[in-house]
Design a protein around this nucleic acid. Structure first.
Length: 277
DNA sequence: CCGCGGGCCTGCGCGC
DNA sequence: TGCGCGCAGGCCCGCG
């Protein structure tokens, strides 16, 4: 499910609802998520105030105090939603795994059918979190520029699809937005890193940022199960240019090509080989 | 060290 | 209607 724009959308929703509030109760219905929920998680977060909400790549962060940060990863099918108390008590939904209630009356529910997501705490500075240690830079940061990308890939014999999916290089892009960004930049996902020019890399970076920002603006992409925290779908699926469009005419003006789908590095990849060179 | 493929789960849509 | 298959927005791990 969620890539960077979807997590950013969820983050903005959570900020509006629980920032500054205190976690007054937690209920965990299943602990066997992608990684088992630690036995002491409840103890570590109970009665803590949410001092800040953050996002690193596709990870959501609840800053509780100097020592403790709650990390949430939504995997492929995870959702966070807000509900009223009565709804939680009487209509627990299938695959609801965790409920946190706050002193402002808000309930946050984590639901995840496939259980590829997980919840855990970071003790100490979140920057030292082991899952962030080797993680690449944020794609929307200033550091992510053409030069950075070019330096990272100019000797690589991997294809662009797998390069941009590599979270150690740039963290937060996933299957949808890599296809979208490469289409926007008119560069073919099968091209090899070492054959890319600095100009090509600059184009990719510009397109990536443009696509991500637009997706955030539209509240992310809902293919089937992504929801904003109030249950609203995202709207960026209406703005997709290639993802899921195999067999359709390329949307680029004056391009007579057809969108094709192929499996690159194990993932479905969509592109138009007529205009993506 | 690096890159790749399999595995983790459930649900859905498709062809038969 | 039902069944089996393939596929799905991500990540970790083991292997070569």
């Amino acid at each position: 499910m969620p890539e960077l724009p979807e997590i950013e959308t969820v983050k903005l929703g959570i900020e509006k609802t629980v920032l500054g509030s205190v976690i007054i109760s937690t209920k965990i219905f299943r602990r066997d998520l992608r990684f088992p929920i630690n036995d002491n998680l409840e103890k570590l977060i109970l009665n803590k105030r949410v001092l800040g909400i953050g996002r690193r790549s596709k990870y959501l962060l609840f800053f509780l105090n100097k020592k403790t940060t709650l990390v949430l990863h939504l995997g492929m099918s995870g959702k966070i939603s807000v509900r009223l108390k009565s709804e939680c008590e009487y209509t627990l939904k299938k695959h609801d795994h965790l409920i946190m209630s706050f002193d402002n009356g808000i309930f946050l529910i984590y639901n995840d059918p496939r259980r590829f997501g997980f919840v855990e705490t970071i003790e100490g500075n979140y920057k030292d979190y082991r899952r962030f240690r080797y993680m690449g830079i944020e794609p929307l940061s200033k550091k992510f520029d053409g030069k950075y990308l070019w330096n990272k890939i100019k000797k690589s014999s991997r294809n662009l699809k797998s390069i941009l999916m590599d979270q150690k290089l740039v963290a937060g892009l996933g299957n949808i937005y890599v296809s979208e960004a490469l289409w926007d930049s008119q560069i073919n996902p099968t091209r090899i890193g070492k054959n890319m020019s600095l100009i090509d890399c600059q184009k990719i970076v510009v397109s990536t940022k443009k696509v991500l920002k637009k997706a955030i603006k539209f509240g992310g992409t809902t293919l089937k199960d992504f929801r904003q925290i109030g249950g609203e779908v995202g709207y960026f699926q209406n703005k997709l240019q290639v993802y899921g469009k195999e067999g359709q005419s390329c949307f680029r003006r004056k391009c007579k090509g057809t969108v094709e789908k192929s499996i690159i590095s194990g993932r479905s990849t969509f592109y138009c080989s007529t205009c993506q060179k």
